[in-house]
């Protein structure tokens, strides 16, 4: 299997249909790398003509901006936009809701105009178009799955249906948490909290959310964000439930069910 970089394709005089923006978590975090690989496997399997930026990709600047460091954000945005515009990128798909939000909503006024799609929407389209074919009796058929809404997908960008539609395609039993969709509870990672200790309180946010997810009795907690994934995985470990309950990304669920 070959994952092409933009530089390689350019050298061959080719342009991909879509750029896969991997994001820092997807590139470096050991757990999130699995999500990246699962998504790349799907893209290869359905013959999508795509490329990554490889070593040239940089942080979008989301955690810098949200913690208050606008200078650093603007620097990262400047570099990324130069690079993307230099390659003439038109369409981007990303597995990270934070990258998605920044690329889609915050780069345009800085000169970066692209069609940006989150991988859950992308997967839904591929399923709807019949390009992704799933096993008749996949390993998640009939299983109880609870989907945790990512803030940067849901409230930030009103994407609630796409991930659920993808899960429905698995013939699984979807169980909603009480706080779901626009009322969904944050995993605790956003706003650069991922990179620092929680402030003083009674409990950690990821524990509060994991308890709610475990309360549904689901055997899979589905996430659509590498940071949510980390937070929920830590929560499940903390509750010593990692034997019974898996935390999986939507892309991983699909990849494991490909026909």
């Amino acid at each position: 299997m070959k994952v092409n970089t933009m530089a390689e394709l350019m050298a061959k005089g080719e342009t991909p249909e879509v750029l896969f923006w991997v994001g820092c978590a997807g590139s470096f975090d050991v757990r999130a790398q699995k999500i990246t690989k699962a998504f790349a496997t799907i893209l290869n399997k359905v013959n999508i003509n795509y490329a990554i930026l490889g070593k040239e990709e940089m942080c979008t600047g989301d955690p810098a901006r949200r913690s208050g460091n606008e200078f650093l954000f603007q620097m990262m945005a400047y570099n990324n936009i130069q690079l993307l515009n230099g390659y003439g990128i038109k369409k981007i798909v990303t597995t990270c809701p934070h990258c998605f939000n920044t690329l889609k909503n915050e780069y345009p006024e800085l000169g970066g105009h692209y069609e940006v799609i989150h991988h859950t929407t992308f997967l839904q389209q591929l399923i709807d178009e019949g390009k992704i074919k799933l096993k008749e009796a996949g390993s998640f058929k009939g299983k109880k799955i609870s989907y945790h809404d990512s803030c940067y997908l849901g409230r930030s960008n009103n994407i609630y249906e796409a991930p659920r539609k993808v899960l429905e395609a698995l013939d699984a039993e979807l169980i909603e948490m009480k706080r779901c969709r626009s009322n969904g509870l944050c995993c605790g990672a956003g706003g650069a909290q991922m990179f620092k200790e929680d402030e003083k309180g009674n409990t950690r946010i990821n524990i509060e959310r994991t308890e709610e997810a475990l309360g549904t009795g689901a055997s899979v907690i589905a996430a659509a964000c590498p940071f949510c994934n980390t937070m929920m995985t830590d929560g499940v470990k903390n509750k010593e439930k990692e034997k019974e309950v898996q935390v999986l990304d939507i892309a991983e669920l699909i990849e494991q069910s490909l026909a």
């Binding site: 994952v3 970089t5 590139s27 470096f28 490889g54 650093l72 990179f195």
Partner: peptide, 23 residues
């Protein structure tokens, strides 16, 4: 985190060269 982003282009202290290790 700021200095990592500035120097390694990612919020963690990891070598930028490893960004496409998964690929």
């Amino acid at each position: 985190m700021f200095s990592n982003i500035e120097n390694n282009f990612a919020p963690w202290k990891l070598a930028p060269d490893e960004r496409d290790k998964w690929a």
